[in-house]
Design a binder for these strands. Structure first.
Lengths: 133, 133
DNA sequence: ACCGCTGTGTTAACACCATAGTACAATAAT
DNA sequence: ATTATTGTACTATGGTGTTAACACAGCGGT
């Protein structure tokens, strides 16, 4: 990951993990890696990772069992709602921005298709599996 | 404007003005408001606004005439390139995020349409003109 | 009982962002 | 010449993010 978006790192990590929960890549009830381990994996300080995970706990997407570790919520409804909410939020942000840019709906549609193709092409080339969490 | 995105305010302002230049809402060669004036208008400190405008000057989107004020570049090609670049960058960011969310191209398409309709609806209701710059 | 793992809390240091306030140089208008 | 306006520079302060290096509490396995 690259943390170049200007937003705080802990926040970027929170959003990233949120997406992996929403996508189902992190299964409900699964145990997640330890704070220190995750911190090494993503190249940040354990405190920063702690802050990121704490935010996810606040949203009830993770819960912690005192000494055995952290787990993904088993609340499937919550996860489904999360996914829909994030899609809507991201899309609205995108549409607003692009509209402010003076681009039409058609402009956005073609740009969207072009970038989906670009993405699928990249995925085919570098078939590396993600090993986080 | 609301500055809740986590990114630095000066950076958000830069991007916002960039979009207004790209859209043509700020015409090439036009004079922009004074730093202090703009700062009041957007409710930020003059220093913050200065920083935002300095970033735009670094990109040659604005230039300054020592004592008469700042002006939008007259380089139409640059503006056109800016617009295409920003659309591509925003779209790629959106597509990447949404794909990570586990959403398909169709999911994105319908979400896009829904939000464009929502946006057009809102624009019709509150027909306030923007008075910045 | 001991060791190692877990999460958690604390302190300190450094950098960046945002704000306030002040000051100065150069031009335009009077 | 004087005044107002322009951009620019500087200091200082408070808040937050990031990192580092610790220490502690609770549970499991040996």
């Amino acid at each position: 990951m690259d943390f170049n978006s200007g937003a705080p790192i802990y926040s970027q990590i929170s959003e990233y993990i949120k997406r992996r929960i929403a996508s189902g890549e992190l299964h409900p009830g699964d145990k997640v890696m330890a704070v220190r381990e995750l911190a090494v994996e993503m190249g940040v300080n354990p405190n920063t990772m702690q802050k990121a995970l704490a935010a996810l706990e606040h949203d009830r997407l993770l819960y912690t069992e005192r000494t055995s570790g952290r787990f993904v919520t088993s609340d499937i409804e919550l996860i489904e709602k999360l996914k829909l909410d994030m899609l809507e939020k991201e899309t609205f942000r995108y549409v607003t921005t692009v509209n402010e840019l003076g681009c039409s709906r058609e402009d956005a549609r073609t740009a969207l298709d072009r970038n989906f193709n670009r993405l699928k092409g990249e995925e085919k080339e570098s078939c590396q599996q993600k090993e986080y969490l």
